[in-house]
Structure formats: C-alpha cells, structure tokens
C-alpha cells in the first residue's frame, strides 16, 4: 500500500496545484479582446429569422432555442472579420467555442470553456488547426475533412457543428449587408 501511495504522491508532485479555472481556458471577453487587438468593436446582434433558425437546427440535429446571436465585426470587403462565441453540448455538457471568420473561411477556432468529463483533446491546436481555411459548402458541410479523435468523438462532433454554424451566420450577415 505504501508503495502505491508513494507513486501517486510522486506523480502529484510533478503537477501544479494552483487552483485555476481549469474548465475555463480563456474567458469569452478575453478571446474577443485578443481577436481585435484589445480594441474590440461594439457587439452586434443577429436576429434569427425562421429560415436561418431551421438551418441552424439542421446542423445541430436538434432545436435551437435562442432568438438572436451576438457577434463582433470589423472591416469591410476582403478585410471584414467576424467573431462568434457559440456553445454546443458534446456528451453531456456544453462546450464554449470562439470562432473567427474572415473572407468566408475559418481563421481561428478556440475552445474557451470545456466542461465534459472526457474529450478535452479538442481544445489543443493539433485539432483546431484542422479547421483553418475551412469554408461552408452548399449543403452546409465543411469544405475539408476534420479527423476524429478516438475517445473524443462527441466533442469533435460538437466543435465541427459550431464551425459550420459560425460560417453560416457570417454568410448571413454578409448577405444582409450586401442587400
């Protein structure tokens, strides 16, 4: 028994015990600050019309209850950049994700808050880097393959859905601006 306890203690000693907010990797406000170089534009609101809400529900494979979605946008034309904070449940708990779209492509995805018991690999760059330059196809799927992570299937699925929704929402605000 002492042998086991010694091994456990030795491993614990290698880790920091600082009680940080482990599930919160980056506060959403801080993400927006970073995206817009500490001078974020004022948040805007996109009201979800019936058709858009249906498209979101089709991507999620379940109803979306919200009436509107907050976003941040700066620039116009090719320099237009929009940022979104979106949430979707992986296995049992919501995963909060920050997504930046520029030129109809994903520029950046970051998992900001992860509350699931397993699947936290999705927050690391080797996974989220796969989304860079992904576009939305006509069938509302991503233009490039995102490889799964064994043991994190449901978290991977949630992040992929959020990426598709962010691209769809960006397309929507662009179309409304162009009208």
């Amino acid at each position: 028994m002492k042998r086991y306890l010694y091994i456990i203690f030795a491993i614990l000693s290698l880790n920091s015990f600082a009680a940080q907010a482990g599930g919160v990797y980056l506060q959403p406000d801080e993400f927006i600050n970073q995206v817009f170089d500490n001078a974020p534009p004022k948040a805007r609101v996109l009201w979800l019309k019936k058709e858009l809400k249906k498209q979101i529900a089709d991507i999620l494979d379940h109803k979306y209850k919200g009436l509107r979605i907050r976003y941040w946008q700066r620039g116009d034309g090719d320099n237009r950049k929009s940022a979104w904070i979106l949430e979707e449940t992986g296995k049992k708990e919501p995963i909060t994700t920050g997504i930046v779209i520029k030129d109809n492509q994903i520029e950046l995805i970051k998992v900001l808050v992860f509350r699931e018991s397993r699947g936290w690999e999705v927050r690391h760059d080797f996974f989220t880097d796969q989304f860079k330059q992904a576009k939305l196809k006509k069938d509302h799927r991503l233009s490039q393959t995102i490889d799964n992570i064994s043991g994190a299937t449901l978290s991977v699925r949630a992040v992929k859905k959020l990426a598709r929704i962010a691209l769809l929402l960006d397309q929507t605000i662009q179309n409304e601006t162009d009208k």
Binding site: A19, A21, G22, G23, R118
Partner: peptide, 22 residues
C-alpha cells in the same frame, strides 16, 4: 480541475483501459 491540464477524480470510476470501457 487542478490546473488547465490536470484533473483529479475521486469516487466510483471507470478503469482507464481499452476502448469500450469508458
């Protein structure tokens, strides 16, 4: 959560082995 990369669980747990066990 002990820090961003470390977690401790205490209670009735699934043994971390195989694919289907967890």
């Amino acid at each position: 959560d002990l820090d961003d990369n470390t977690r401790a669980n205490a209670g009735v747990l699934l043994i971390p082995v195989g694919i289907l066990n967890e």
